[in-house]
Design a protein around this nucleic acid. Structure first.
Length: 259
DNA sequence: AATAAACTTCGTGTTAGGGC
DNA sequence: GCCCTAACACGAAGTTTATT
């Protein structure tokens, strides 16, 4: 694989990092798509992600295909995205090889951004999913002064997240289980189902293997369902998933339903 | 006012490479 | 080596903007 070495100087990389920052499973800024980011960087309204948090609707309306409605929606989305979670924030940073699952492990292990920032390669490799290569990427990210400055600008502009609470084992009845979702879920969005399963301690994987505990398949399921039956992995439907969630969530922590 | 075009979102599937 | 993640590519559908 060949990768541009331009770093922060490279316009294309800046655009991509901003797009990633705003994407669904990161800070989830609704309405901040590829074309908007492109324009914002080109006209130099935005140099890095911290600039997003000072944008105003009146400025945004100068962009192509941006009317009152879209501009106001976008400003509202940006405002909403300030309140996030540590795993989402870590994922949003775009550290190489740190995707959603790894970000979650890091957040749970360190519990605090500052502790992660100061971690050495030796401490990092103790985290599940993190080996020498990923540890090195993380260390060099935080060794970069520009990144540290960016982090402080982000917090100065209101980006924040609640402290990680260490969940008691009793509140994680699905610990040790690996779940795969496939097909279209009707009652739940995919992300919501995933979030609720994770909250209960399950691991939600993207591919089926021998170690998969159960596959929940909705209409339209394809290759993953086929693989599950081939490997003899248990398969259930959305109704079963809903029943399971309902049964387990009635305990202490209330289910977090998406807005 | 109605229609067309542009852009984003949502969901699936595939593949290379890192972890164990 | 197997398993799984990260990262990518694509199609469908829903909104909003621009056009006639």
């Amino acid at each position: 694989l060949i990768r541009c070495s331009g770093g922060l100087i490279c316009g294309a990389q800046r655009k991509e990092s901003i797009r990633h920052f705003a994407s669904r499973n990161a800070l989830d800024i609704d309405g901040m798509g590829e074309r908007i980011v492109e324009q914002l960087v080109d006209v130099e309204l935005v140099r890095d992600v911290s600039d997003l948090f000072v944008l105003e609707a009146s400025t945004l309306m100068s962009l192509d295909r941006m009317g009152v409605k879209s501009a106001e929606k976008l400003v509202a989305s940006i405002a909403r995205s300030r309140r996030t979670t540590l795993p989402k924030f870590l994922y949003a940073l775009g550290i190489r090889e740190v995707g959603e699952a790894t970000a979650l492990q890091l957040a749970n292990h360190f519990g605090d951004l500052m502790l992660l920032q100061e971690a050495s390669v030796e401490t990092l490799v103790a985290v599940p999913d993190v080996g020498p290569i990923v540890a090195e990427h993380i260390v060099s990210f935080f060794a970069n002064r520009a990144n540290i400055d960016l982090l402080s600008r982000l917090t100065a502009r209101g980006v924040s997240w609640p402290a990680i609470t260490v969940a008691s084992p009793e509140s994680k009845p699905l610990a040790g289980q690996t779940v795969v979702l496939t097909g279209t879920l009707v009652k739940l969005s995919r992300n919501e189902a995933k979030a609720r399963l994770i909250a209960l301690g399950a691991k939600v994987a993207g591919s089926v293997s021998k170690s998969t505990t159960i596959v929940y398949a909705g209409p339209g399921a394809g290759s993953k369902l086929a693989k599950a039956t081939e490997l003899g992995v248990e398969v259930a439907d959305e109704a079963a998933l809903l029943a399971l969630l309902a049964a387990l969530e009635t305990t202490s922590d209330a289910p977090k339903t998406a807005p």
